[in-house]
Design a protein around this nucleic acid. Sequence first.
DNA 1: CTGTTAGCGCGTTCAT
DNA 2: ATGAACGCGCTAACAG
Lengths: 334, 334
Amino acid sequence: MTEQTHRRVTSADVARLAGVSRATVSYVMNDTPAQTISPSTRTRVLDAAARLGYSPSAAARTLRTGRSDVVLCLLPDWPIGPEVGSMLGNLSTALARHGLTLVVHPGNREDRPIGEIWKAITPAAVIAYTDFSPGEIVAMRSAGVALVVASLGRGAQPDRRELAVPQQLIGRQQAGHLIAAGHTRLGYAYPDDDRVRIFAEPRLAGVRAECRDRQVGGPATETVALDPEQAASAVRRWHAAGITAVCAYNDEVALAVLAGVRLEGRSVPADLAVIGVDDIPPARLAAPALTTVTTDQVAVAAYLSATVVAAINGRPGPAVPTDDLVHLVRRESA
Amino acid sequence: MTEQTHRRVTSADVARLAGVSRATVSYVMNDTPAQTISPSTRTRVLDAAARLGYSPSAAARTLRTGRSDVVLCLLPDWPIGPEVGSMLGNLSTALARHGLTLVVHPGNREDRPIGEIWKAITPAAVIAYTDFSPGEIVAMRSAGVALVVASLGRGAQPDRRELAVPQQLIGRQQAGHLIAAGHTRLGYAYPDDDRVRIFAEPRLAGVRAECRDRQVGGPATETVALDPEQAASAVRRWHAAGITAVCAYNDEVALAVLAGVRLEGRSVPADLAVIGVDDIPPARLAAPALTTVTTDQVAVAAYLSATVVAAINGRPGPAVPTDDLVHLVRRESA
DNA sequence: CTGTTAGCGCGTTCAT
DNA sequence: ATGAACGCGCTAACAG
């Protein structure tokens, strides 16, 4: 066993090798504007640092400055798909440009209380898809977390920014497309999973709003599990109610509806038009190919990033970019 | 604007309120075994801590002990699906039982070098799906990261543990099922994405190995993009070669094959049997429902967790649980 | 200008 | 049960 005796390389080591003081090392490493350093010294320090493989202790820096460069994203319990995954990737890139590092904590049922998590990280900001209790917000504050960003939270609070990606727009776009295609009796395929309610409710609300605005009958809502049989019975009820088109919570639910229609011996879109959300890869591979609505994840990530950066600096966040965020992908199912 | 003047609550505050020394606070908070504390003092300290909402500074603790309770998982660039997502959730739970907090860094092209990431966290362990350069390993060492766990890495190194989830088993199971069903000419649908090669290669190798062991013709490999047209041309080539069944890299690729077969006017499984990997929700909603192979994510998470914990404590890791990790989900496509 | 000295931030731990 | 020192980087004050 080669036991690791690798003592950590500290700024003192660099200082020693470069023949300067630790303060000088710090000034050089940080390009401190208020302090001028002669080029020769600078080079010597940089050289020494490189030779030793020096990297400053994040813990020490955080302790001293009271702020880390980490942004923590608390994910909810539900299964995250490739869309969220790509959004997080984009967000990571966007934040990196501001010197911030994104880390994500995957949610899971029997997790320790949220508190344990950010306490272990001391992030500069927290992005959460769940609401915090007032107590937790106070606790974060007193622990030094500068900002609590609550995505999708219900009511705006003075303490936190609302990052609600306008889920309603998604519902509106779905319904709008269907109505424009001549449908007058819409259905809504609601997910059979309580954990995604924070997304499902605003989307359904968007569909409802669009129906109202366009003078069309409100959507006949059915809960649709990811199972052909159960989907088939929903299809039967829609049929009985004269529904000709349905908006699905997302592509998976839409795929279930497709399977249900198939099981009923009917066809899409002739008997029932279907539109999903997300444009997951299987959507274009389905029979028929699924018409769906997507969110511009790059734009969402940019917006989130800007909001976080602004909040960290105590500035007001940017306005929600309501336009050009949701796009229709027209295929065969609607 | 209610400006936040909330000074951080420190152990000194608790000590003052409880009328004891900071050392005592530390001993109480950590239940230090070597130090006896009278019940009355203990209560007083705990009370004070609760009243003030005290939570120790992770940075200070990390600085002092040289180790944080965070395990960092570095995700690769590719889109992560619900399977990986649920595995991470399970892993998080498993690690939490050992007082460890899992955080995930989503990979993305134009990211800062990996180094920047763990430097900002000072994790107790790093789990990565990519290989590190020897230089990075040395750097982590010298920065105080106890362990570098390379999942799926090619060759075992003395420095790191191999957590290779036996991807070969997946391929073997796929091919085994097909061969048992009487197929003697197998095809392999390889993904059209370089980023997933670390998974695709061992899976294909598994199929190859099974074919060899069972005296069946090695798989005719075709790269299949997630596009019906392109999949159709692969199907044509397979047909010309007399292939009667194909193993797909994963369910999405399998779905593409299904679409290709459909486009060719042929049928599954009569003309071509298809088997996928992962059992994503759309698999059972496809026409025909997709036969597939799944990995027991709970078991994988438990194994990963045990390996990490063992390594942190300098003990040898558990053996790879090769059995009961991969299961066949029998449906209609094969 | 250039670079140094000194002390802080906060929890941990040894010796008294 | 306590005083004191430590881990490591930051930065105000100060000396050449």
